[in-house]
Design a protein around this nucleic acid. Sequence first.
DNA 1: GACCAGGCACATC
DNA 2: GATGTGCATGGT
Length: 222
Amino acid sequence: MSSVLQTAYDRLHAAFGPQHWWPADTPFEVMLGAVLTQNTSWKNVEKAIANLRDAGLLHPASLRRVPTEELAELIRPAGYFRLKARRLHNLIEFLFRQYDGCLESMFATALETLRELLLEINGIGPETADSILLYAGNMPTFVVDAYTARVLKRHGWIEPEADYHAIKDHFEGQLPQDTALFNEYHALLVRVGKEFCGPTPRCEACPLRPLLPEGGPLAPGT
DNA sequence: GACCAGGCACATC
DNA sequence: GATGTGCATGGT
């Protein structure tokens, strides 16, 4: 409980409080958002989801029926819209093929098994899969994203070469396997990333400031 | 106008 | 196995 990661979590939680992630009404909406937010700001994703809601498509069966080109137009504000329309349909087809369209059945699958199945879907990579598992399925898997990697590497808490899997293991190896903790921790890392640890760091008022190594953070781009 | 944003798949060497 | 490129909108 005295690791750097625990201390960092305590600082972030004290500074920012609960983040109430994922910002969505239903697990299905979380799944869609996980694909739509790939390399895209959440603001743009919100517009796309609002379009889907207005069109009555925030349900597996209705989304499955809409033609891919029509879906693409609705999610246009989220960027990569043709690509993401195909990815959403790939995910839906998997849901129906394996679980008859039932999310409860899907999340009744063992974590590691479901993770591997999701990763077989074209368009679902590690971050999207873990986001679905954690934020839609309430399953204890740690989500790593660009902010997470940047915060850890800049503070020298992990080697600069560490890839997705290494960073994920770093967290899961040092923290209790607690869904609520993983949920909050990732959200807090995004929060501190946005406010203090972007491409150009603003470390002066960062809650992690006292945890910086001697000499301050590493240069941007690392 | 450049750069960035809660990635991923695929081509090429 | 490492590196480069396409995918696209909207905000700063």
